[in-house]
Structures are given as structure tokens and as C-alpha cells.
């Protein structure tokens, strides 16, 4: 009885195939390397995944509204660069972090303004802001790279609380907060409803512009947090440090079963998506595959996971349609 209920809820959830993809990737990895399943390595994977999770968590909300935010990686870079510069001028670390988060918030609100108020297509608007923030980061750094950040700042990226790395704790807390926002608040509900049918949201008297602004602001905030953790982990900052993330941030969300059309999916899928992407590069490092091939493999896994997800969704729809 209980098991069948679990089975049913698994089949009905969008996470089923994401979860199976995770098990599949883990299974293959275990076969390829003995050290993969060791506790140390699993912690390493989570620590590596944490920045990606943070960056893609706010983006999940944006994609749920039916929008997209392509400016996340360079917003993170801009915030990282400004934070590093401020830390070098001996400003209090708490103040610096708050300033960093505010910058992310401003970028997010700017995106929300472009999409919600000016009604620009999100893809183009946020691609534009991505270039703008990259330009700003370059101006801030004047082409230089900053190394050796203050000792009281780097633990955010490399420190431990007991046996657990601090970035993992930060990302876990953030994911809980975002899960609560999306699942348990009226804002979250409005985000889903807006993504499901924007016209119906307007005709239901919802404040569609405000909801859009809030979703993009959230994405800006988490981008900033991701940038701060990234900078602390690298113990360095440079204007191009967002490059390595690029569209991986979007891929993590989409692999997690969140529909690019909006209205379907959620934060836990994104967490699994981020972990899968990290495992792939982890296992290839463990068995010593060169980095050219890594990119190829990551690309293929993204395509296969999304294909599986779409395929399973169609199957479910058909089965339900034939019942009703």
C-alpha cells in the first residue's frame, strides 16, 4: 500500500527521469573508478556542485515563470570582482557581502524591468545584460586578476563546519529557502501560475509585472551569492571567471525537469541536475580523460537527459489522455 503510493508519486512527479539519470550516471561512475563512491569523493562532488546549485537556484524561479536569465554567470563574476576589490580596500567583510548581494539584486531588478515592464523577450534582454555586466566587470578589474583575498573571507569557499564544507551548508540552506518560497508561499504559487498561462494570470487579477520582477530579482540575488562563494573558493577574482559556468547553469535547471515553457518543474530537480553535471566532470578527472572530451561528454549527457525527460512526459500525457 505504502510502496505503491510512493511508486505512484514517483511516476507522477517530474523528477523521475532526472532521478534515474542520476542513478545511471552514479552507476557508470562506480564501475569506472573504485574511488568514486568513497565518502571523501562524494563530499568533493557536493562541494564542487554547490556553486552551480546556488547559481541555478534563482534561475529555476525565472524559468518557472516562462522566462530565462542568461546573465547569471557574468553577474556572479561582476559581484566577485567588486567584492574582491572592496576586500582589498579593507572594508568590513559583512558590509562587502551585503554590497555584493545588493549589486546582484540591482542586476536582477534591471532584468525584471526589461522583461516585465518593457516586455522585451527574456532571451535577448538578459543576453544583453550579460554583456553589460561582463563589460562592467572588465572595467572594475582593468584587465587585472586579484589573488590572495583576506583570510577571514576565503572560508566561505574552502572552510569546514565540523566535517562539512561551508559551501555545501550555504547551498543547502539556500535551496531550503527557495523550496519554501516556491512550494509554500503565494509568491511561489503565482510564479507557477504565471508560467503556466501568463494571459490567465493577468485575467485572474494577478500582479504579473511584480511577480516577474521578484523572480528576476531572486535570480540576481542567488547569482551574487554564487559569485561570492566562487570568489572565496578560487581565492581569486577576474572578469572572466563566469565563463566556465556559462549555459551549464541553464542546463542544470532543464536537466532537472523544469520546462523552458514555464509552469512545470522545481528546485529539487535543479539540485539533481547540478549534481549530475558535476559527477560527469568528477569521474572524468578521476580516470584521467582529457578536458576536450569532457566537454563532449557533458554535452551528450545534457541532450540525452532532456530527451528522456520530454519523452517520458509525452508518455505520461498520452496515458492520462487515454484514461480520461
Amino acid at each position: 500500500m505504502r510502496i505503491s503510493k510512493i511508486k505512484e508519486s514517483l511516476i507522477n512527479t517530474n523528477y523521475l527521469f532526472t532521478f534515474m539519470a542520476l542513478l545511471f550516471v552514479m552507476g557508470i561512475s562506480t564501475l569506472l573508478s573504485e574511488s568514486f563512491l568513497s565518502g571523501d569523493n562524494l563530499i568533493t562532488i557536493l562541494r564542487q556542485a554547490s556553486v552551480l546549485m546556488i547559481l541555478s537556484s534563482g534561475l529555476t524561479a525565472v524559468i518557472l515563470t516562462g522566462g530565462i536569465d542568461l546573465s547569471v554567470n557574468n553577474t556572479a563574476a561582476l559581484v566577485g570582482c567588486i567584492v574582491a576589490q572592496l576586500l582589498l580596500s579593507n572594508i568590513n567583510i559583512i558590509v562587502v557581502i551585503i554590497i555584493g548581494l545588493l549589486i546582484g539584486l540591482v542586476v536582477g531588478l534591471f532584468n525584471g524591468f526589461l522583461v516585465g515592464v518593457l516586455q522585451l523577450p527574456p532571451f535577448v534582454a538578459t543576453y544583453g545584460s550579460n554583456m553589460v555586466v561582463l563589460g562592467l566587470a572588465t572595467i572594475v578589474m582593468q584587465g587585472a586578476v586579484i589573488y590572495d583575498l583576506p583570510r577571514n573571507f576565503t572560508p566561505i569557499g574552502v572552510g569546514y563546519l565540523g566535517p562539512i564544507p561551508i559551501p555545501i551548508i550555504i547551498s543547502a540552506l539556500l535551496i531550503i529557502v527557495i523550496a519554501i518560497i516556491l512550494q509554500k508561499t503565494t509568491l511561489g504559487r503565482n510564479i507557477y501560475m504565471l508560467g503556466s498561462n501568463p494571459a490567465a494570470a493577468l485575467y485572474s487579477g494577478q500582479k504579473t509585472v511584480l511577480i516577474t520582477l521578484q523572480a528576476y530579482a531572486l535570480s540576481g540575488l542567488t547569482a551574487a551569492l554564487g559569485g561570492i562563494v566562487m570568489t572565496a573558493r578560487l581565492n581569486a577574482a577576474d572578469a572572466n571567471m563566469g565563463n566556465s559556468y556559462g549555459l551549464q547553469i541553464v542546463a542544470a535547471v532543464v536537466m532537472g525537469g523544469t520546462s523552458l515553457l514555464g509552469g512545470e518543474g522545481g528546485i529539487f530537480g535543479t539540485v539533481i541536475g547540478a549534481i549530475i553535471l558535476t559527477i560527469i566532470s568528477n569521474i572524468m578527472n578521476l580516470i584521467g580523460i582529457n578536458s576536450y572530451l569532457q566537454s563532449l561528454a557533458v554535452g551528450l549527457v545534457i541532450i540525452i537527459t532532456v530527451w528522456f525527460d520530454i519523452f517520458s512526459r509525452k508518455q505520461r500525457e498520452q496515458r492520462k489522455a487515454s484514461i480520461s
Binding site: 507557477y192 501560475m193 498561462n197 494571459a199 490567465a200 494570470a201 494577478q206
Partner: peptide, 18 residues
């Protein structure tokens, strides 16, 4: 269908939407 309902969402969600 175009203006009244979030078709992908459940009955429960649609009924309390307003």
C-alpha cells in the same frame, strides 16, 4: 483556455488562483 485557466495546473491550484 487562453485566458481563464492555467491548463497545466491542478484543479486545487486554479480554484484558489484569484
Amino acid at each position: 483556455k487562453r485566458f481563464g485557466l492555467a491548463l497545466k495546473a491542478s484543479l486545487a491550484w486554479n480554484i484558489v488562483a484569484v
